[in-house]
Design a binder for these strands. Structure first.
Length: 473
RNA sequence: GGUCCGAUGGCCGAGUGGUCAGGCACAGGUCUGCAAAACCUGCUACGGCGGUUCAAUUCCGCCUCGGACCUCCA
Protein backbone atom coordinates (compact mmCIF):
# COMPACT_ATOMS: atom_id res chain seq x y z
CA UNK A 1 0.00 0.00 0.00
CA UNK A 2 1.18 3.46 -0.77
CA UNK A 3 2.63 5.25 2.22
CA UNK A 4 1.29 8.78 2.43
CA UNK A 5 3.13 11.55 4.21
CA UNK A 6 1.66 14.79 5.49
CA UNK A 7 2.92 17.87 7.21
CA UNK A 8 1.02 17.73 10.50
CA UNK A 9 0.29 21.15 11.96
CA UNK A 10 0.06 19.53 15.37
CA UNK A 11 3.68 18.35 15.36
CA UNK A 12 4.92 20.88 12.79
CA UNK A 13 6.63 18.05 11.00
CA UNK A 14 6.09 15.87 8.01
CA UNK A 15 5.14 12.41 9.16
CA UNK A 16 3.93 9.10 7.81
CA UNK A 17 0.18 8.86 7.71
CA UNK A 18 -1.13 5.89 9.67
CA UNK A 19 -4.93 5.73 9.79
CA UNK A 20 -6.57 4.80 13.06
CA UNK A 21 -8.44 2.22 11.01
CA UNK A 22 -6.83 1.45 7.65
CA UNK A 23 -10.14 0.05 6.50
CA UNK A 24 -11.93 3.34 7.04
CA UNK A 25 -10.24 6.73 6.91
CA UNK A 26 -12.07 9.72 8.34
CA UNK A 27 -11.59 13.29 7.23
CA UNK A 28 -13.20 16.47 8.52
CA UNK A 29 -12.89 19.89 6.91
CA UNK A 30 -14.35 23.17 8.09
CA UNK A 31 -16.98 24.34 5.66
CA UNK A 32 -18.48 27.72 4.95
CA UNK A 33 -20.62 30.02 7.02
CA UNK A 34 -23.50 30.58 4.64
CA UNK A 35 -24.20 34.28 4.68
CA UNK A 36 -22.57 35.40 1.43
CA UNK A 37 -21.17 34.16 -1.85
CA UNK A 38 -18.00 32.10 -1.64
CA UNK A 39 -14.86 34.09 -2.38
CA UNK A 40 -11.65 32.81 -3.89
CA UNK A 41 -10.15 32.21 -0.48
CA UNK A 42 -13.06 29.98 0.48
CA UNK A 43 -12.46 27.93 -2.63
CA UNK A 44 -8.88 26.98 -1.82
CA UNK A 45 -9.52 24.51 1.03
CA UNK A 46 -12.45 23.03 -0.86
CA UNK A 47 -10.27 22.24 -3.87
CA UNK A 48 -7.23 21.20 -1.86
CA UNK A 49 -9.13 18.81 0.35
CA UNK A 50 -11.12 17.54 -2.60
CA UNK A 51 -7.82 16.36 -4.04
CA UNK A 52 -6.90 14.89 -0.67
CA UNK A 53 -10.20 12.99 -0.52
CA UNK A 54 -9.68 11.67 -4.04
CA UNK A 55 -6.18 10.55 -3.14
CA UNK A 56 -7.32 8.87 0.07
CA UNK A 57 -10.06 7.03 -1.82
CA UNK A 58 -7.49 5.78 -4.25
CA UNK A 59 -5.31 4.42 -1.46
CA UNK A 60 -7.79 3.23 1.17
CA UNK A 61 -10.86 1.03 0.81
CA UNK A 62 -13.25 3.38 2.56
CA UNK A 63 -13.13 7.10 3.26
CA UNK A 64 -15.65 9.29 5.00
CA UNK A 65 -15.21 12.94 4.22
CA UNK A 66 -17.31 15.31 6.30
CA UNK A 67 -17.55 19.02 5.60
CA UNK A 68 -20.00 21.12 7.53
CA UNK A 69 -22.31 23.98 6.68
CA UNK A 70 -22.39 26.65 9.36
CA UNK A 71 -25.94 27.92 9.20
CA UNK A 72 -26.21 29.54 12.59
CA UNK A 73 -23.92 32.45 13.15
CA UNK A 74 -24.11 36.08 14.17
CA UNK A 75 -22.90 37.19 10.74
CA UNK A 76 -25.96 35.49 9.28
CA UNK A 77 -28.15 37.16 11.87
CA UNK A 78 -26.63 40.52 11.04
CA UNK A 79 -27.19 39.98 7.34
CA UNK A 80 -30.84 39.15 7.97
CA UNK A 81 -31.31 42.30 10.00
CA UNK A 82 -29.75 44.43 7.28
CA UNK A 83 -31.62 42.95 4.36
CA UNK A 84 -34.85 41.88 5.97
CA UNK A 85 -34.52 38.51 4.29
CA UNK A 86 -35.42 35.60 6.56
CA UNK A 87 -32.47 33.69 7.94
CA UNK A 88 -33.65 30.40 6.51
CA UNK A 89 -33.86 31.98 3.05
CA UNK A 90 -30.34 33.39 3.34
CA UNK A 91 -28.80 30.13 4.45
CA UNK A 92 -30.70 28.01 1.93
CA UNK A 93 -29.81 30.28 -0.98
CA UNK A 94 -26.18 30.68 0.07
CA UNK A 95 -25.79 26.94 0.57
CA UNK A 96 -27.16 26.33 -2.93
CA UNK A 97 -24.80 29.00 -4.32
CA UNK A 98 -21.91 27.34 -2.54
CA UNK A 99 -22.78 23.93 -3.96
CA UNK A 100 -23.08 25.36 -7.46
CA UNK A 101 -19.78 27.25 -7.22
CA UNK A 102 -17.81 24.34 -5.81
CA UNK A 103 -19.21 22.00 -8.43
CA UNK A 104 -18.02 24.47 -11.06
CA UNK A 105 -14.55 24.13 -9.57
CA UNK A 106 -14.74 20.39 -10.02
CA UNK A 107 -15.02 19.64 -6.30
CA UNK A 108 -16.94 16.49 -5.50
CA UNK A 109 -19.48 16.72 -2.67
CA UNK A 110 -18.27 15.40 0.67
CA UNK A 111 -19.74 12.14 1.91
CA UNK A 112 -21.60 13.94 4.64
CA UNK A 113 -22.40 17.61 4.88
CA UNK A 114 -23.84 18.23 8.33
CA UNK A 115 -25.48 21.51 9.22
CA UNK A 116 -24.98 23.24 12.52
CA UNK A 117 -28.72 23.68 13.02
CA UNK A 118 -29.12 19.93 12.57
CA UNK A 119 -26.80 19.24 15.50
CA UNK A 120 -27.99 21.52 18.27
CA UNK A 121 -28.76 18.52 20.45
CA UNK A 122 -25.21 17.22 20.10
CA UNK A 123 -23.82 20.65 20.93
CA UNK A 124 -25.93 20.81 24.07
CA UNK A 125 -24.89 17.30 25.03
CA UNK A 126 -21.24 18.19 24.51
CA UNK A 127 -21.61 21.36 26.57
CA UNK A 128 -23.22 19.38 29.37
CA UNK A 129 -20.37 16.91 29.34
CA UNK A 130 -17.87 19.75 29.58
CA UNK A 131 -19.69 21.26 32.56
CA UNK A 132 -19.92 17.87 34.24
CA UNK A 133 -16.20 17.32 33.83
CA UNK A 134 -15.33 20.74 35.18
CA UNK A 135 -14.17 22.21 31.88
CA UNK A 136 -17.01 24.68 31.44
CA UNK A 137 -19.24 26.90 33.54
CA UNK A 138 -22.48 28.79 33.14
CA UNK A 139 -22.53 32.52 33.79
CA UNK A 140 -25.18 35.10 32.98
CA UNK A 141 -26.91 32.85 30.48
CA UNK A 142 -23.64 31.97 28.78
CA UNK A 143 -21.68 28.79 29.02
CA UNK A 144 -17.94 29.24 28.74
CA UNK A 145 -15.09 26.85 28.22
CA UNK A 146 -12.47 27.23 30.92
CA UNK A 147 -9.11 27.24 29.20
CA UNK A 148 -7.37 27.03 32.56
CA UNK A 149 -8.91 23.61 33.07
CA UNK A 150 -7.21 22.21 30.00
CA UNK A 151 -3.42 22.16 30.29
CA UNK A 152 -2.85 21.36 26.63
CA UNK A 153 -4.67 24.49 25.52
CA UNK A 154 -2.44 26.25 22.98
CA UNK A 155 -0.59 23.13 21.90
CA UNK A 156 -2.03 22.99 18.40
CA UNK A 157 -1.42 26.63 17.54
CA UNK A 158 1.91 26.65 19.33
CA UNK A 159 1.28 29.33 21.88
CA UNK A 160 0.98 29.53 25.60
CA UNK A 161 -1.84 31.25 27.38
CA UNK A 162 0.27 34.19 28.53
CA UNK A 163 1.25 34.92 24.94
CA UNK A 164 -2.31 34.76 23.85
CA UNK A 165 -3.31 37.41 26.31
CA UNK A 166 -0.32 39.66 25.71
CA UNK A 167 -1.40 41.16 22.44
CA UNK A 168 -5.04 40.23 22.46
CA UNK A 169 -7.19 42.86 20.88
CA UNK A 170 -10.31 41.96 22.76
CA UNK A 171 -12.61 43.31 25.35
CA UNK A 172 -12.92 40.78 28.09
CA UNK A 173 -16.50 40.08 29.01
CA UNK A 174 -17.06 40.52 32.75
CA UNK A 175 -18.55 37.08 33.20
CA UNK A 176 -15.38 35.33 32.02
CA UNK A 177 -13.26 33.78 34.74
CA UNK A 178 -10.25 33.89 32.46
CA UNK A 179 -9.86 36.26 29.51
CA UNK A 180 -9.10 33.29 27.24
CA UNK A 181 -12.34 31.50 28.04
CA UNK A 182 -14.58 31.21 25.01
CA UNK A 183 -18.29 30.82 24.50
CA UNK A 184 -19.92 27.43 24.06
CA UNK A 185 -23.46 28.71 24.37
CA UNK A 186 -24.91 32.18 24.51
CA UNK A 187 -28.38 33.61 25.21
CA UNK A 188 -30.65 34.75 22.39
CA UNK A 189 -33.16 37.54 22.60
CA UNK A 190 -36.56 37.21 20.92
CA UNK A 191 -35.27 38.61 17.64
CA UNK A 192 -32.42 36.15 17.43
CA UNK A 193 -32.58 32.45 16.56
CA UNK A 194 -32.47 30.32 19.66
CA UNK A 195 -33.07 26.85 21.02
CA UNK A 196 -34.20 25.74 24.43
CA UNK A 197 -31.36 24.50 26.58
CA UNK A 198 -30.57 23.84 30.24
CA UNK A 199 -29.23 27.41 30.31
CA UNK A 200 -32.28 29.01 28.77
CA UNK A 201 -33.10 29.91 25.23
CA UNK A 202 -29.89 30.47 23.31
CA UNK A 203 -27.60 29.57 20.47
CA UNK A 204 -24.23 27.89 20.16
CA UNK A 205 -20.85 29.58 19.98
CA UNK A 206 -18.89 29.14 16.82
CA UNK A 207 -16.38 26.45 17.77
CA UNK A 208 -18.67 23.93 19.42
CA UNK A 209 -20.42 23.00 16.20
CA UNK A 210 -17.37 21.37 14.63
CA UNK A 211 -16.71 19.38 17.78
CA UNK A 212 -20.33 18.23 17.76
CA UNK A 213 -20.55 17.39 14.08
CA UNK A 214 -17.22 15.61 13.84
CA UNK A 215 -18.17 13.60 16.93
CA UNK A 216 -21.54 12.66 15.48
CA UNK A 217 -20.26 11.69 12.04
CA UNK A 218 -16.66 10.58 12.56
CA UNK A 219 -16.42 9.74 16.26
CA UNK A 220 -14.53 11.10 19.23
CA UNK A 221 -11.24 10.71 17.40
CA UNK A 222 -10.55 10.67 13.71
CA UNK A 223 -7.71 10.83 11.21
CA UNK A 224 -7.48 14.18 9.51
CA UNK A 225 -8.87 17.62 10.20
CA UNK A 226 -8.36 20.26 7.56
CA UNK A 227 -9.04 23.93 7.11
CA UNK A 228 -7.51 27.27 6.32
CA UNK A 229 -4.41 28.38 8.22
CA UNK A 230 -6.36 31.28 9.64
CA UNK A 231 -8.54 28.81 11.50
CA UNK A 232 -5.64 27.35 13.43
CA UNK A 233 -6.29 29.83 16.17
CA UNK A 234 -8.67 30.18 17.78
CA UNK A 235 -11.11 27.94 15.96
CA UNK A 236 -9.16 24.69 15.79
CA UNK A 237 -7.45 25.23 19.10
CA UNK A 238 -10.86 25.58 20.69
CA UNK A 239 -12.26 22.59 18.87
CA UNK A 240 -9.45 20.44 20.18
CA UNK A 241 -9.96 21.71 23.70
CA UNK A 242 -13.69 21.04 23.60
CA UNK A 243 -13.48 17.57 22.12
CA UNK A 244 -10.56 16.32 24.13
CA UNK A 245 -11.85 17.76 27.39
CA UNK A 246 -15.32 16.36 26.80
CA UNK A 247 -14.15 12.86 25.95
CA UNK A 248 -10.93 12.68 27.93
CA UNK A 249 -9.02 11.72 24.79
CA UNK A 250 -5.35 12.36 23.99
CA UNK A 251 -6.17 13.87 20.60
CA UNK A 252 -9.12 14.94 18.49
CA UNK A 253 -7.77 14.53 14.99
CA UNK A 254 -4.48 12.75 14.62
CA UNK A 255 -3.33 14.84 11.68
CA UNK A 256 -4.10 18.52 11.15
CA UNK A 257 -3.68 20.02 7.70
CA UNK A 258 -3.86 23.74 7.00
CA UNK A 259 -3.90 25.36 3.61
CA UNK A 260 -2.08 28.65 3.11
CA UNK A 261 -3.88 31.89 2.47
CA UNK A 262 -4.88 33.15 -0.91
CA UNK A 263 -3.68 36.70 -1.44
CA UNK A 264 -4.75 39.35 -3.88
CA UNK A 265 -2.19 42.03 -4.59
CA UNK A 266 -0.09 40.59 -1.82
CA UNK A 267 -2.77 40.91 0.80
CA UNK A 268 -5.05 38.28 2.27
CA UNK A 269 -8.43 38.17 0.66
CA UNK A 270 -11.07 38.52 3.29
CA UNK A 271 -14.58 39.70 3.61
CA UNK A 272 -13.65 42.11 6.36
CA UNK A 273 -11.03 43.81 4.18
CA UNK A 274 -13.50 44.02 1.34
CA UNK A 275 -10.84 43.03 -1.20
CA UNK A 276 -12.38 39.75 -2.15
CA UNK A 277 -13.28 38.33 -5.51
CA UNK A 278 -16.09 35.82 -5.50
CA UNK A 279 -15.98 32.49 -7.25
CA UNK A 280 -18.82 33.88 -9.32
CA UNK A 281 -16.57 36.71 -10.49
CA UNK A 282 -14.16 34.11 -11.82
CA UNK A 283 -16.79 31.85 -13.34
CA UNK A 284 -18.29 34.82 -15.19
CA UNK A 285 -15.17 34.98 -17.36
CA UNK A 286 -16.20 31.94 -19.32
CA UNK A 287 -17.05 28.26 -19.22
CA UNK A 288 -13.33 27.53 -18.91
CA UNK A 289 -12.83 29.62 -15.80
CA UNK A 290 -13.81 27.12 -13.11
CA UNK A 291 -11.37 24.46 -14.19
CA UNK A 292 -8.68 27.03 -14.93
CA UNK A 293 -9.01 28.40 -11.43
CA UNK A 294 -8.82 24.89 -10.03
CA UNK A 295 -5.58 24.34 -11.92
CA UNK A 296 -4.29 27.70 -10.72
CA UNK A 297 -4.93 26.63 -7.12
CA UNK A 298 -3.23 23.28 -7.55
CA UNK A 299 -0.16 24.71 -9.27
CA UNK A 300 0.93 26.04 -5.89
CA UNK A 301 1.60 23.75 -2.96
CA UNK A 302 -1.35 23.86 -0.57
CA UNK A 303 0.64 25.12 2.41
CA UNK A 304 2.13 28.09 0.58
CA UNK A 305 0.54 31.47 0.22
CA UNK A 306 -0.85 31.99 -3.25
CA UNK A 307 -1.05 35.45 -4.76
CA UNK A 308 -3.92 35.41 -7.22
CA UNK A 309 -3.43 37.20 -10.51
CA UNK A 310 -5.50 37.46 -13.64
CA UNK A 311 -2.41 36.54 -15.67
CA UNK A 312 -2.11 33.34 -13.68
CA UNK A 313 -5.68 32.41 -14.51
CA UNK A 314 -5.10 33.02 -18.21
CA UNK A 315 -1.93 30.94 -18.11
CA UNK A 316 -3.84 28.12 -16.46
CA UNK A 317 -6.47 28.30 -19.18
CA UNK A 318 -3.76 28.09 -21.85
CA UNK A 319 -2.34 25.03 -20.17
CA UNK A 320 -5.74 23.36 -20.16
CA UNK A 321 -6.18 24.30 -23.82
CA UNK A 322 -2.95 22.49 -24.62
CA UNK A 323 -3.91 19.48 -22.53
CA UNK A 324 -7.35 19.14 -24.06
CA UNK A 325 -5.86 19.56 -27.53
CA UNK A 326 -3.49 16.71 -26.77
CA UNK A 327 -6.32 14.54 -25.45
CA UNK A 328 -8.42 15.37 -28.49
CA UNK A 329 -5.70 14.14 -30.83
CA UNK A 330 -4.97 10.95 -28.97
CA UNK A 331 -6.57 7.72 -30.18
CA UNK A 332 -8.42 5.53 -27.72
CA UNK A 333 -6.37 2.60 -26.47
CA UNK A 334 -6.98 -0.33 -24.20
CA UNK A 335 -5.45 -0.47 -20.77
CA UNK A 336 -1.90 -1.70 -20.43
CA UNK A 337 0.61 -2.00 -17.59
CA UNK A 338 2.60 0.82 -19.19
CA UNK A 339 -0.35 3.19 -18.87
CA UNK A 340 -0.74 2.30 -15.22
CA UNK A 341 2.97 2.76 -14.65
CA UNK A 342 2.99 6.19 -16.24
CA UNK A 343 -0.08 7.30 -14.30
CA UNK A 344 1.39 6.09 -11.02
CA UNK A 345 4.58 7.96 -11.77
CA UNK A 346 2.67 11.19 -12.34
CA UNK A 347 0.73 10.75 -9.11
CA UNK A 348 3.70 9.76 -7.00
CA UNK A 349 4.36 13.33 -5.76
CA UNK A 350 0.93 13.47 -4.14
CA UNK A 351 1.90 10.95 -1.51
CA UNK A 352 4.52 13.39 -0.29
CA UNK A 353 2.36 15.98 1.44
CA UNK A 354 0.13 16.47 -1.58
CA UNK A 355 2.75 17.89 -3.90
CA UNK A 356 0.33 18.89 -6.62
CA UNK A 357 2.74 21.25 -8.44
CA UNK A 358 5.16 18.41 -9.07
CA UNK A 359 2.37 16.07 -10.12
CA UNK A 360 1.22 18.70 -12.60
CA UNK A 361 4.75 19.05 -13.94
CA UNK A 362 4.78 15.30 -14.54
CA UNK A 363 1.44 15.54 -16.28
CA UNK A 364 3.10 17.99 -18.65
CA UNK A 365 5.77 15.40 -19.36
CA UNK A 366 3.10 12.85 -20.19
CA UNK A 367 1.57 15.43 -22.49
CA UNK A 368 4.88 15.86 -24.28
CA UNK A 369 5.23 12.09 -24.60
CA UNK A 370 1.80 11.86 -26.14
CA UNK A 371 2.41 14.75 -28.52
CA UNK A 372 5.67 13.35 -29.71
CA UNK A 373 3.93 10.02 -30.34
CA UNK A 374 0.86 11.38 -32.13
CA UNK A 375 2.00 14.63 -33.74
CA UNK A 376 5.61 13.66 -34.25
CA UNK A 377 8.86 14.57 -32.66
CA UNK A 378 11.34 13.11 -30.27
CA UNK A 379 10.57 12.03 -26.75
CA UNK A 380 14.22 11.35 -26.06
CA UNK A 381 14.85 14.54 -24.11
CA UNK A 382 11.92 13.99 -21.77
CA UNK A 383 12.66 10.31 -21.26
CA UNK A 384 16.28 11.06 -20.55
CA UNK A 385 15.42 13.75 -18.04
CA UNK A 386 12.93 11.60 -16.14
CA UNK A 387 15.07 8.49 -16.41
CA UNK A 388 12.49 6.31 -18.11
CA UNK A 389 12.68 4.07 -21.15
CA UNK A 390 9.00 4.24 -21.99
CA UNK A 391 7.99 3.88 -25.62
CA UNK A 392 4.27 4.58 -25.55
CA UNK A 393 2.29 4.17 -28.75
CA UNK A 394 -0.16 6.95 -29.62
CA UNK A 395 -2.92 7.18 -27.01
CA UNK A 396 -1.12 5.52 -24.13
CA UNK A 397 0.46 8.57 -22.55
CA UNK A 398 -2.84 10.38 -23.01
CA UNK A 399 -4.65 7.58 -21.19
CA UNK A 400 -2.15 7.79 -18.36
CA UNK A 401 -2.58 11.55 -18.32
CA UNK A 402 -6.34 11.19 -17.97
CA UNK A 403 -6.06 8.65 -15.21
CA UNK A 404 -3.60 10.72 -13.19
CA UNK A 405 -5.37 14.01 -13.82
CA UNK A 406 -8.56 12.46 -12.44
CA UNK A 407 -7.06 12.47 -8.97
CA UNK A 408 -6.48 16.19 -9.36
CA UNK A 409 -9.96 16.61 -10.76
CA UNK A 410 -8.57 18.11 -13.95
CA UNK A 411 -8.91 17.48 -17.67
CA UNK A 412 -11.80 15.06 -17.33
CA UNK A 413 -14.08 16.86 -19.75
CA UNK A 414 -14.70 16.22 -23.42
CA UNK A 415 -11.82 17.79 -25.38
CA UNK A 416 -14.07 18.80 -28.23
CA UNK A 417 -16.49 20.52 -25.91
CA UNK A 418 -13.61 22.36 -24.22
CA UNK A 419 -12.01 23.51 -27.47
CA UNK A 420 -15.01 24.02 -29.71
CA UNK A 421 -17.91 24.41 -27.30
CA UNK A 422 -20.22 27.38 -27.51
CA UNK A 423 -22.36 28.70 -30.28
CA UNK A 424 -23.35 26.80 -33.40
CA UNK A 425 -20.24 25.84 -35.30
CA UNK A 426 -21.77 25.23 -38.73
CA UNK A 427 -20.68 28.65 -40.03
CA UNK A 428 -17.15 27.90 -38.92
CA UNK A 429 -17.20 24.51 -40.60
CA UNK A 430 -18.49 26.12 -43.79
CA UNK A 431 -15.73 28.72 -43.75
CA UNK A 432 -13.14 26.02 -43.24
CA UNK A 433 -14.55 24.08 -46.20
CA UNK A 434 -14.35 27.21 -48.34
CA UNK A 435 -10.78 27.75 -47.26
CA UNK A 436 -9.86 24.16 -48.07
CA UNK A 437 -11.25 24.68 -51.54
CA UNK A 438 -9.18 27.84 -51.93
CA UNK A 439 -6.10 26.02 -50.76
CA UNK A 440 -6.72 23.18 -53.20
CA UNK A 441 -6.79 25.83 -55.94
CA UNK A 442 -3.62 27.33 -54.47
CA UNK A 443 -5.50 30.57 -53.91
CA UNK A 444 -3.44 31.43 -50.87
CA UNK A 445 -4.75 34.97 -50.60
CA UNK A 446 -8.32 33.77 -50.23
CA UNK A 447 -7.33 30.99 -47.87
CA UNK A 448 -5.47 33.43 -45.66
CA UNK A 449 -8.33 35.91 -45.79
CA UNK A 450 -10.74 33.27 -44.45
CA UNK A 451 -8.28 32.27 -41.79
CA UNK A 452 -7.88 35.89 -40.69
CA UNK A 453 -11.60 36.37 -40.69
CA UNK A 454 -12.10 33.38 -38.42
CA UNK A 455 -9.29 34.53 -36.17
CA UNK A 456 -11.06 37.85 -35.77
CA UNK A 457 -14.02 35.81 -34.51
CA UNK A 458 -11.77 34.07 -32.02
CA UNK A 459 -11.38 30.89 -34.01
CA UNK A 460 -7.88 29.49 -34.52
CA UNK A 461 -7.17 27.08 -37.37
CA UNK A 462 -4.56 24.38 -37.35
CA UNK A 463 -3.63 22.59 -40.55
CA UNK A 464 -2.37 19.12 -39.84
CA UNK A 465 -1.68 16.00 -41.84
CA UNK A 466 -5.15 14.75 -40.99
CA UNK A 467 -6.88 17.92 -42.15
CA UNK A 468 -7.74 21.26 -40.62
CA UNK A 469 -8.88 21.46 -37.02
CA UNK A 470 -10.07 24.49 -35.12
CA UNK A 471 -10.54 25.76 -31.63
CA UNK A 472 -11.87 28.83 -29.95
CA UNK A 473 -9.18 31.09 -28.56
C1' G B 1 4.86 43.80 21.25
C1' G B 2 4.43 38.09 20.93
C1' U B 3 4.17 33.56 17.78
C1' C B 4 4.85 31.39 13.04
C1' C B 5 5.91 31.07 7.80
C1' G B 6 8.26 32.61 3.44
C1' A B 7 12.25 35.05 0.05
C1' U B 8 14.38 30.53 -6.35
C1' G B 9 16.02 33.09 -13.33
C1' G B 10 11.46 38.57 -16.96
C1' C B 11 6.86 36.03 -14.58
C1' C B 12 4.69 31.48 -12.13
C1' G B 13 6.64 27.53 -9.39
C1' A B 14 9.02 22.37 -7.47
C1' G B 15 13.26 20.51 -5.29
C1' U B 16 18.14 19.28 -3.53
C1' G B 17 24.66 19.25 0.80
C1' G B 18 28.18 18.07 -4.90
C1' U B 19 25.00 15.72 -12.24
C1' C B 20 18.12 18.21 -14.84
C1' A B 21 12.79 20.60 -12.06
C1' G B 22 8.75 22.08 -14.98
C1' G B 23 5.60 25.87 -17.18
C1' C B 24 4.79 30.84 -19.33
C1' A B 25 7.27 34.68 -22.01
C1' C B 26 11.36 35.51 -25.32
C1' A B 27 15.08 33.88 -29.31
C1' G B 28 16.60 30.20 -32.95
C1' G B 29 15.41 25.53 -35.51
C1' U B 30 12.33 21.26 -37.72
C1' C B 31 7.54 20.88 -40.06
C1' U B 32 4.11 24.03 -43.12
C1' G B 33 2.16 27.37 -49.42
C1' C B 34 2.50 30.88 -45.21
C1' A B 35 0.92 30.32 -40.41
C1' A B 36 -0.79 27.75 -36.16
C1' A B 37 -0.03 23.43 -33.37
C1' A B 38 3.61 19.95 -32.10
C1' C B 39 8.70 18.67 -31.34
C1' C B 40 14.02 20.29 -30.62
C1' U B 41 17.71 24.01 -28.84
C1' G B 42 18.98 28.39 -25.99
C1' C B 43 17.63 31.49 -21.68
C1' U B 44 22.42 28.16 -16.48
C1' A B 45 18.34 31.29 -10.75
C1' C B 46 18.31 30.33 -5.70
C1' G B 47 17.39 38.07 -0.67
C1' G B 48 22.14 40.08 2.25
C1' C B 49 26.25 38.99 5.77
C1' G B 50 28.74 35.44 8.54
C1' G B 51 29.42 30.16 10.21
C1' U B 52 29.72 24.55 9.68
C1' U B 53 31.73 21.54 5.49
C1' C B 54 36.36 19.08 0.89
C1' A B 55 31.63 21.22 -1.09
C1' A B 56 25.75 25.39 0.87
C1' U B 57 20.57 27.64 -3.13
C1' U B 58 20.02 23.35 0.35
C1' C B 59 22.28 22.99 7.43
C1' C B 60 23.09 26.96 11.57
C1' G B 61 23.13 32.25 13.25
C1' C B 62 22.22 37.36 12.35
C1' C B 63 20.07 41.06 9.11
C1' U B 64 16.62 43.00 5.39
C1' C B 65 12.01 42.49 3.05
C1' G B 66 7.14 40.20 2.62
C1' G B 67 2.99 37.49 4.54
C1' A B 68 -0.14 35.02 8.32
C1' C B 69 -1.98 34.58 13.39
C1' C B 70 -2.73 36.94 18.46
C1' U B 71 -10.67 35.19 19.91
C1' C B 72 -15.01 37.96 12.32
C1' C B 73 -11.95 35.22 8.84
C1' A B 74 -10.75 29.45 4.22
Amino acid sequence: MTQLRFHNSLTRREEEFRPLDPAHVKLYVCGPTVYDLAHLGNARPVVVFDVLARLLRRVFPRVTYARNITDVDDKINARARESGEPISAITARTTADFHRDMAALGALPPDVEPTATGHIAEMIALTEKLIARGHAYAAEGHVLFSVGSFPDYGKLSGRNQEELLAGARIDVAPYKRDPGDFVLWKPSDDETPGWDSPWGRGRPGWHIECSAMSWRHLGQQFDIHGGGADLLFPHHENEVAQSRAAFGTPFMAHTWLHNGMLLVNGEKMSKSLGNFLTVQDILAQGPWAGEAFRLLLLRTHYRSALDYTEAGLIEAKAELDDSYAMLGRAPAVSDTPLITEMAEWALEPLVDDLNTPLAIARLRDLRTLENSATVGGSAAAVLSRIGKAWQPVPGQAAAAFREAAAVLGLAQGDPRAWLQGGDDASAIEAAIAARLAARAAKNWAEADRIRAELLAQGVVLEDGPGGTTWKRA
